[in-house]
């Protein structure tokens, strides 16, 4: 199986007043062609930094301190700005989290959709037709008329459809979706998920889907990557990971999912403790301080324990947790 995206030992550090904040530490993951891979993890685990690193759109104070990123076997971690610009929007595109702010408020939808086709030597009318066809495809009523509309005239769900239309229009190899449903209500969430599934089937792209919503990941994705405090702690097929997690963090995360609660509780379950200080991360296992399985051995860096490939977890006690 070919891989659309391969990230290997990627590390990113932010320069802060308190010193280098190691937001990503040796992150490795892969997105096989035509599959939907979910990345799950709580806020601050490095999901957004990862996207920034993939697109080379990190803030100025961030530097990639190591690792490689390969898009369809092409190394892009060290690609020239010129080459990167060619890839963006064309080979990899992205749907951002908040549709209320991710579209330019003073430029019409049509103009924004035409502008991203700037590489194609086709006429204005053709670009318009293509944009309208794409809007129709994502379920926008009156797609031709909507071309002259401005983002503020559309609802959140409609705007996210526009964003998906823009991302899918150039038939990218990889579509990155950065929590595309977090800002939407639950009924819209399902529609957007269904839409992404259809789009994926039609253009055959791979999707990297970032979310902190376990239910959405389980519904949509083939594979899941679990991140904690800037590291990948577990990766595998969705059923494998969610039914028999091998990392204590994943296990806790699933236990804390409000969707699992059967009856009303006074307080929602949570993982005791807090995220480690990433300017000075502890040696050994990053989850050690909050982990119920932790033993003395956890002071050493956990190995990558393979269960049923591609399922693996970075934990000394993976077999025990896996059960």
């Amino acid at each position: 199986m070919t891989k659309t995206l391969e990230v290997e030992r990627l590390s990113v550090t932010y320069a802060t007043r308190e010193g280098g904040l190691q937001a990503l530490r040796e992150v490795s993951l892969e997105v096989p062609a035509g599959q939907i891979v979910g990345i799950v993890g709580e806020s601050g685990c490095g999901k957004s930094t990862l996207i920034g690193a993939l697109l080379h759109l990190l803030p100025e104070n961030a530097t990639r301190t190591g690792g490689s990123i390969r898009l369809a076997d092409e190394e892009i971690a060290t690609a020239s700005p010129r080459r990167l610009r060619d890839l963006r929007g064309q080979d990899m595109s992205v749907v951002f989290q908040d549709p209320m702010t991710s579209l330019n408020p003073v430029i019409s939808i049509g103009r924004q959709m035409r502008d991203i086709q700037y590489r194609d030597r086709i006429g204005h009318a053709e670009k318009n037709d293509r944009a309208a066809a794409m809007l129709a495809r994502v379920g926008m009523p009156d797609p031709k008329g909507k071309l002259s509309a401005y983002p503020h005239e559309l609802s959140g769900g409609m705007r996210q459809r526009v964003a998906i239309a823009m991302a899918a229009m150039m038939m990218p190899k990889l579509l990155i979706a950065d929590e595309p449903t977090t800002a939407l209500d639950a009924t819209l969430e399902i529609q957007i998920i269904e839409l992404l599934k259809e789009i994926q089937k039609e253009i055959g792209c791979a999707i990297l889907f970032i979310s902190h919503h376990l239910g959405v990941i389980a519904e949509l994705c083939d594979r899941v990557v679990v991140m904690y405090a800037g590291e990948v702690v577990e990766e595998g097929a969705v059923e494998e990971v969610f039914l028999r997690p091998a990392h204590p963090y994943t296990q806790k995360l699933i236990e804390c999912d409000p969707g699992r609660l059967k009856r009303k509780v006074a307080s929602l379950p949570s993982i005791p403790g807090s995220l480690p200080d990433l300017t000075n991360p502890p040696a050994g296992c990053i989850f050690r301080a909050r982990c119920p399985y932790a033993t003395d051995i956890c002071i050493e860096r956990p190995p990558r324990v393979t269960l049923t490939p591609p399922h693996w977890a970075a934990c000394h006690h993976a077999q025990e947790v896996h059960g």
């Binding site: 697109l55 759109l57 990167l84 610009r85 060619d86 890839l87 963006r88 929007g89 064309q90 595109s93 992205v94 951002f96 908040d98 702010t101 991710s102 579209l103 330019n104 408020p105 003073v106 430029i107 502008d115 991203i116 700037y118 590489r119 964003a163 823009m166």
Partner: peptide, 24 residues
């Protein structure tokens, strides 16, 4: 965020700054 979107779609820097950003 919408400037990041424009850059994420590979629009030329000149267009992003002197059109997408300056208009606002």
């Amino acid at each position: 965020s919408y400037i990041r979107t424009a850059r994420a779609f590979g629009l030329p820097r000149r267009v992003v700054i002197y059109n997408y950003a300056l208009r606002v």
